[in-house]
């Protein structure tokens, strides 16, 4: 990590705002449903799905010290509660996070 995190943040801000400014400049001139835009959406969704899977299966930092079964069962509990309680994202996320806290506390103590 020779480059400061500030450079990463600066680059991230420029790239992110760049897309927004490009959208303003191009509005009314391009079709947001064109094949190119659909490809862009596919790339973004694949990347984000990969990112989320990686954060669950192979996280860095302190989460990486927890056992894989703890994180997978937390995801399972979140999905289960989400579907049982009429697709409530709030309840699903809360249940999954509480589950992870519970199993890490029990395993650690």
């Amino acid at each position: 990590m020779t480059v400061s995190a500030w450079w990463f943040l600066l680059v991230g801000a420029i790239v992110t705002y760049g897309w927004r400014a490009a959208g303003v400049a191009l509005s009314g001139r391009i079709d947001p449903n064109s094949a190119l835009m659909r490809w862009v959406a596919c790339v973004a969704y694949a990347l984000l799905a990969g990112l989320i899977a990686r954060l669950i299966v192979a996280p860095q930092g302190a989460l990486g010290d927890t056992a894989l079964w703890m994180r997978l069962s937390s995801a399972g509990v979140a999905l289960l509660v989400y579907f049982i309680f009429r697709r409530s994202i709030v309840l699903g996320v809360t249940a999954g996070a509480l589950w992870l806290m519970a199993v890490t506390t029990l395993a650690g103590g």
Binding site: M1, A22, G23, L26, A41, A44, L51, Q60
Partner: peptide
């Protein structure tokens, strides 16, 4: 932040953020 912590280069981070946030452009459009 994931790429920064993984020790990735600025270029890798720029492209990844660019791809992750590319959907902002058609949203603005």
């Amino acid at each position: 932040i994931e790429i920064f912590v993984a020790g990735g280069s600025l270029l890798a981070a720029a492209i990844a953020v660019g791809l992750a946030n590319a959907r902002l452009m058609p949203m603005v459009v």
